[in-house]
C-alpha cells in the first residue's frame, strides 16, 4: 500500500510540476529567440556576412543539462516496451537544444555573426546504469567581431571591380 501511494504521488508531482516547468521554459525560449533572431548564424565554415574589418574571432560555447520529470520518464519507459515515437522525450531534447544555442548566442554580445556552429548531445546519466534520465547539450561555434561590409560599400566595390 505504501509504495503504491508513493508511486502515485511521484507521478502526480512529476506531471504537474514537469508540465509547469516545461511550459515556462518554452515561453522563455520563445522570447529569447525573438531577441536573438537578428544575429546571423550558420554552420558553414565561410563567413555569412562579408567583413570589412575583423577584430576578433573566438570560440563560444553554450551548454545545458536538463532532466525529464518522473511522469514523462515513466511514459518513455512504457513507450520503449511497445515501440514507436517517444514524444515525451522530444520536448526535452528540443528545449535543451534551443537553450544551448541561445546560451551560446548570449555569450557573444556584440558579435557580427556566428559561423561553423556544431551541436553535441550526450546522455550523462547512462553511466549510472539508468537508461533514462538527463541529457547534456553543447552548442559551439566561432563568433566573429568587427565591422561588416555595408551594402553601399559592397555595391561600390562591385562597380569599381567592374570598371
Amino acid at each position: 500500500m505504501i509504495p503504491f501511494i508513493g508511486f502515485l504521488t511521484l507521478l502526480l508531482l512529476g506531471y504537474v510540476f514537469g508540465r509547469w516547468a516545461e511550459q515556462r521554459h518554452f515561453h522563455s525560449i520563445a522570447a529569447r529567440e525573438q531577441q536573438w533572431v537578428s544575429l546571423p548564424n550558420s554552420n558553414n565554415r565561410e563567413l555569412l556576412i562579408p567583413m570589412q574589418q575583423i577584430d576578433k574571432a573566438e570560440l563560444v560555447c553554450g551548454s545545458v543539462v536538463i532532466s525529464i520529470d518522473y511522469f514523462k520518464r515513466l511514459l518513455a519507459m512504457l513507450r520503449s516496451i511497445v515501440g514507436g515515437p517517444v514524444a515525451s522525450y522530444e520536448t526535452l531534447l528540443d528545449r535543451a537544444r534551443r537553450e544551448a544555442l541561445l546560451r551560446m548566442k548570449e555569450q557573444c554580445t556584440g558579435a557580427v555573426q556566428i559561423i561553423n556552429i556544431r551541436v553535441e548531445t550526450s546522455s550523462i546519466h547512462n553511466a549510472a546504469g539508468n537508461g533514462i534520465g538527463s541529457v547534456e547539450l553543447l552548442a559551439y561555434g566561432t563568433a566573429i567581431y568587427g565591422k561588416a561590409v555595408d551594402e553601399v560599400q559592397q555595391l561600390s566595390a562591385l562597380t569599381s571591380a567592374a570598371n
Partner: peptide, 8 residues
C-alpha cells in the same frame, strides 16, 4: 530531431 523506440 526525433526519438523513436522499437518494441520489446
Amino acid at each position: 530531431s526525433t526519438v523513436r523506440a522499437k518494441h520489446v
